[in-house]
């Protein structure tokens, strides 16, 4: 069995390098990367957005590399278990981590983790932004964010927002909105976004933040008040941004990326970033991401680093406010 794998690895390596003589020579000297299959750590339970993205990407990337990407699910502790597990892998370019900005902005601020988000992990590409739509129960007489804010100012503490838990991006959206708009709204944590969304549909809570509300907004089951940030969402172009509604600057956001050890060899990092960006530029991949409810986009490595570092600093302010941040 073992010898078979080795021979196949050798053949695949040789075939992939046949066209470039120079690297072919390297290949014979010390089997060129990737000489074996790559572990792809998914830090959440199967079935969620991260899982869907990983399934989409691993097929394509595996095809390009002539290797398999082996999905390795390590769910738990909001992703912290998966991140720590990933850190325990050798930084040799044979492991990837499917991640969100939580791994840079939230998790290291609230949980003791075995990585430094600034120096240990490198986000390679922007898979897509998950638009944080703001939706409210139609019983609330507000058609826009401004109207809602005015209403909430008259009724402090009367409105509640449902989220998928403490310290999630939805929760931080609520803290941010309350702080920036000067209103008082009640946080009600649920177990998962679908339960929270259901509570807003039923009127148990009045407000919901997240891409999951899109179907309900377009079906008029919920009123769309806007979308967090400064860019409109192409799938729901009628929703104004929070910046347009007078709340300029950074707003809590959610984006998906693929992460590699910063200590992995630089040429592998560059090569993977290029390959992944090529995959993300494919029309059929873009179309799938849009269907998942994401906004596809592009950032280079420096842009990704800036996103990660900005989120660390900005989320920390909100997490301190919520009393959740670890003491440093």
């Amino acid at each position: 069995m073992k010898s078979v794998i080795h021979r196949r690895a050798f053949l695949a390596g040789a075939a992939g390098l046949g066209s470039v003589a120079l690297s072919a020579r390297n290949g014979f000297a010390q089997q060129a990367w990737p000489a074996r299959d790559i572990t792809y750590v998914i830090p959440y339970a199967p079935g969620g957005m991260s899982d869907n993205i990983s399934r989409l990407l691993s097929d394509k990337l595996g095809g390009m590399l002539g290797r398999q990407l082996l999905n390795d699910y390590r769910a738990g502790a909001g992703g912290a278990i998966g991140a720590n597990y990933y850190m325990a892998q050798k930084p040799d370019g044979y492991s990837l981590l499917q991640a969100t900005n939580s791994f840079f902005g939230v998790i290291p601020n609230v949980t003791k983790v075995e990585y430094d988000p600034k120096t240990d992990l490198t986000p390679l590409v922007l898979v897509g932004d998950a638009p944080m739509a703001i939706a409210c129960n139609p019983a609330v007489p507000a058609k826009s964010l401004e109207e809602f804010v005015a209403l909430a100012k008259k009724n402090p503490g009367k409105f509640a927002y449902g989220t998928s838990g403490h310290g999630t991006v939805g929760h931080l959206c609520g803290i941010w909105l309350a702080k920036r708009a000067g209103i008082e709204i009640l946080h009600v944590p649920y177990r998962g976004a679908s339960q929270a969304l259901q509570s807003t549909l039923a009127g148990e809570t009045q407000l919901f933040f997240g891409p999951e509300a899109a179907e309900q907004i377009s079906g008029k089951a919920l009123t769309g008040l806007g979308v967090m940030g400064s860019e409109r969402w192409s799938a729901m172009p009628d929703l104004p941004t929070t910046a347009e509604s007078g709340l300029a600057g950074w707003a809590p956001r959610s984006w998906h990326t693929v992460v590699i050890h910063s200590k992995a060899p630089e040429e592998i990092r560059l090569k993977l970033a290029k390959m992944l960006n090529d995959i993300l530029a494919m029309p059929e991949v873009k179309q799938r991401l849009i269907m998942f409810g994401l906004i596809p986009g592009f950032e280079d490595l420096a842009g990704m680093r800036k996103r990660a570092d900005d989120d660390y600093a900005e989320f920390r302010v909100l997490l301190v406010e919520a009393g959740l941040a670890l003491k440093k």
Binding site: P46, G47, G48, N52, R55, E215, Q216, G219, R288, M291
Partner: peptide, 15 residues
Amino acid sequence: ALMTGAMLLQGIVPG
């Protein structure tokens, strides 16, 4: 939740 994922992968938005 997994079935939702399966539908999405097939291009169907459950709802």
